[in-house]
């Protein structure tokens, strides 16, 4: 009887140690897997993109002013118009989304009554769940004609349309993270400012937003990441003409929409196929740089705040 109990005890002790190990391995695996996936993607992109430059001059690729891999006459692979388009719609969307997003966040954290906040926040989060295809559709049937009327132009499939739609898609991220940051600022900041005779407006603008700046910048960078990588919406709503964009009221064609348009029909292992992976690599490097810069900014502000 006694030996039985002992045995039992021993057994659980062993299995518990094993359990610990398993759990440790499980979390280690979870932690490492995204790193592996990222490295895998990066290697794949590089390996598949490199053959591009056997046939295309790197200089022509990076500084070429025309992209036409399915030309009737002569194929050309120049990415400048697409780079410009991508930056245009991204910056355009940030110009719209940042003031709106930070304003909404400040309203929710400092002005709105708890009741309003309870209703408004989930609604904003639902906005993040709308599929991009639906937003693109709205761009065609709603935003496009509206832009056409306001600016008195023939059609509204242009960079401005894309910027507005991307702003809508970036808003939930910006609002949600900025609001969290503002809410987490110690109440003593708020009270000290008010005690010094500042108005609520002055407190928000001069105390709370600067105090939460690192979080707000992080929010905007995340929003920017979303805008750069978004495909379906811009594919549907920006006209996608490959010419160099002339203004926000003309058609633009981003890196993402070019990949989406052409990858479906491209024959495997041709120059065109490799070139599309090279586009993907360019896109990857851009988002990587955005993240890097935002990290550096975050670190700097954290040091200053300390």
């Amino acid at each position: 009887m006694q030996s039985n109990i002992l045995k039992h005890k021993k057994k659980t002790w062993v299995s518990r140690r094993l359990q610990e190990k398993l759990i440790h391995a499980f979390f280690f695996f979870n932690g490492i897997i995204s790193v592996i996936v990222l490295l895998g993607i990066f290697t794949l992109l590089i390996v598949t993109a490199i053959p591009t430059f056997k046939e295309i001059n790197l200089k022509d690729f990076l500084f070429g002013m025309q992209w036409n891999p399915t030309s009737y006459l002569k194929e050309v692979y120049g990415i400048v118009p697409m780079l410009v388009s991508t930056f245009m719609v991204t910056l355009g969307s940030l110009v719209i989304a940042i003031p709106l997003g930070v304003g909404t966040a400040a309203y929710l954290s400092d002005v709105a009554s708890p009741r309003v906040r309870e209703i408004a926040k989930p609604i904003i989060e639902i906005l993040a769940g709308i599929p991009s295809v639906v937003i693109g559709f709205l761009g065609i049937v709603l935003v496009g004609p509206f832009i056409g009327k306001v600016f008195n132009i023939h059609n509204g499939l242009n960079g401005l349309n894309g910027s507005i739609l991307l702003a809508i898609m970036a808003l939930p991220t910006i609002i949600s993270i900025s609001e969290d940051t503002l809410t987490n600022i110690p109440d003593s900041y708020n009270q000290a400012s008010l005690a010094l005779g500042a108005t609520k407006w002055q407190t928000i603008i001069k105390v709370k937003i600067p105090a939460g700046l690192s979080g707000i910048i992080a929010a905007c960078m995340l929003g920017m990441g979303r805008a750069i990588g978004e495909t379906m919406t811009v594919l549907m709503a920006t006209g996608c003409a490959p010419a160099m964009p002339e203004s926000f009221l003309g058609p633009v064609r981003t890196l993402t929409s070019s990949i989406a348009i052409e990858l479906g029909e491209v024959a495997y292992n041709t120059t065109h196929y490799y070139a599309l992976f090279a586009l993907g690599l360019v896109l990857f490097i851009i988002t990587f740089l955005v993240n890097l810069v935002s990290d550096i900014i975050l670190n700097k502000f954290e040091k200053v705040n300390r």
Binding site: N68, Y72, L73, N155, L235, G239, C240, M244, P251
Partner: peptide
């Protein structure tokens, strides 16, 4: 018998072209 103008809007299907022409 040559290349399309670079300024041509590239639409995602026949129906989208019909819709666009109706409005433009």
């Amino acid at each position: 018998k040559g290349d399309y103008s670079q300024k041509m809007n590239r639409m995602n299907g026949n129906a989208q072209i019909v819709e666009a022409i109706k409005q433009d």
